[in-house]
Write a protein that binds this DNA or RNA. Structure first.
Lengths: 303, 303
DNA sequence: GAGCATGATCGATGGAACCGATTGAAACCT
DNA sequence: AGGTTTCAATCGGTTCCATCGATCATGCTC
């Protein structure tokens, strides 16, 4: 079978991305004439119409087949890149740019310890960071805008995960709260309390609800329409006596309490309540082995 | 990023397949010098050692990285082929070679009706047939040796499936059997009977056991170490009074009984006992839409 | 040690990819 | 309506590289 040239596929993808011959050509670092001729050659070779010719108005219009081929061209180019990338990584592992996504309930407690450790262990690693909710990180991973995630399981998405460490949930109480007399506090004892959690979208909220056996999204927020947007504000709300909350061990260990008048108690229940911190990457990523090599360093920084 | 050329990747894959420079070159329709130079250029471009040079004795020896890259090169080439194939199919759907796998409990009852219908509807389709157990068909599909399967669900494997028609199980009894007095016969009434099934490996056995609520692989065989290898022999064993069995509607409709002294009764139970006949193909196959277009013709042939 | 098989190397060549300039056509502005 | 702008297709000329055929180097076999 006669294969299309990668260069021509690049032209096709670039045209789809930019919607303009000249700009697409510039993005490919060729002249417009080259790109135009390349696409015509591709159409001729595939014996298929990719663009609506003749009715040319302002923007190039793809045929349905053209759009389908754009998508397939993207995956083919990605597969070719994977070949080159695999070789590049074998040549020089854990160096170069790495786009890392971290969820907000891990980031502030991990990064201050992780970054220096990584700088020392892998000085040639150029780390780009993005903090966001799990859902958006996974979308970024899928779209190829992120290479590696640090998140909490269980999490939905098409990715390979590598568990790092269990992160237990503890109960945070306003000082003097009657539950503080018990340690550990059985989860069932929380049923009468006002449980404060992060606003919807944070996986910590889902995991905490699951740990308490609550149906999803039914935990109380402090007031209607007002919910905590970070663990730090959540702690302040608990300190203010608005309710109780669950805090991950990682955050407590990271000093989130400060001087706030909040007491911490262990929890007991059917299963140990908590979440699993993990690395995640695209399935069959060329850098999978590389990422797995990072796991010990991250695990140490998790404490 | 500088991409490797498809041609060089073909050289790499061909060398891995043939284990010999000369034969690999012949398979690529180039001279040995061209292939050799191409691989050296690839090594230089990727700045990676793919072959154990110097110690070259009888056969080329790949480095671990080389083997990894061979695998990635295969997927990259397959992705490029998918681009070309998508265009070819759009140009001329349902023509050319199609390698079809069918399980033995469908094949003899479907093909006599399906083949003429396909020949008439798609005269340019060149159909290659393979009859085998589900497991081996799925393996062939994965390996790219088959394009399309006709099988019975539920079935395990990495594939997209398109349900065609329900195929109900009926009870086959030796003439004069006491259960023949009832119609339908409740599944629970089978518990005292000797239930004959196909030998292990046939999905029909698994599905029939599931329909009867039996744990897997516990149905009786006629004698220890002797089990039926086809539905036709199974019918003869029932006719001989060795026990009872379940037959799919498709087989009965296909005339499997002939003149054998066997009575057929409907079955009743919690769920309608039966299996789902379906088409199956590789996920994201360029020909997915094409295959789905075959479904009506196959469904009609199923009766 | 002669003979053979295998893979690397070399010089020549044809074709493909590319560029810069130009043309042709449609849309926009006044 | 007419001039202007924008955009894609086309053309001629140049460069570069994959390929070929032939030769060389090496290690195994008899």
């Amino acid at each position: 079978m006669l294969l299309p040239s990668p260069q021509q596929l690049r032209y096709l993808v670039a045209l789809a991305d930019h919607g303009h011959f000249g700009r697409a050509a510039a993005a490919c670092a060729v002249t417009q004439s080259t790109l135009s001729a390349g696409l015509i050659a591709l159409e001729r070779q595939l014996a298929a119409g990719l663009l609506e010719r003749g009715t040319a108005v302002k923007r190039p219009v793809f045929t349905p087949l053209g759009l389908e081929l754009v998508a397939r061209a993207r995956t083919a180019l990605a597969a070719l890149e994977a070949v080159a990338e695999t070789a590049a990584i074998a040549r020089d592992p854990l160096s170069g740019p790495l786009r890392l996504g971290i969820i907000p309930t891990i980031s502030p407690f991990l990064l201050p310890r992780l970054m220096p450790a990584l700088r020392q262990a892998y000085p040639r690693l150029r780390l780009w960071l993005r903090e966001d909710l799990t859902e958006r990180l996974v979308a970024g991973l899928d779209a190829g805008k992120l290479d590696l995630l640090i998140l909490a399981l269980p999490a939905a998405g098409n990715m390979e995960t590598l568990p790092l460490a269990e992160d237990a949930f503890h109960l945070a109480l306003p000082r003097g709260h009657h539950l503080a007399a018990r340690d550990p506090v059985p989860i069932s004892a929380l049923s009468g309390e006002r449980l404060l959690l992060l606003e919807d979208g944070h996986c910590l909220r889902d995991h905490a609800e699951a740990a308490c056996g609550l149906p999803r999204n039914l935990a109380a927020t402090a007031e209607e329409g007002f919910s905590a947007t970070s663990l730090h504000t959540l702690v302040q709300m608990v300190a203010g006596g608005l309710g109780v909350t669950l805090l991950p061990q990682l955050a407590i260990h990271g000093g989130i309490l400060g001087d706030a008048p909040v007491d911490i108690r262990r929890l007991s229940g059917a299963a140990t309540p908590g979440r699993m911190l993990a690395l995640a990457w695209r399935p069959r990523s060329p850098r999978a082995a590389e990422f797995a090599g990072l796991a010990p360093t991250v695990a140490v920084a998790l404490g």
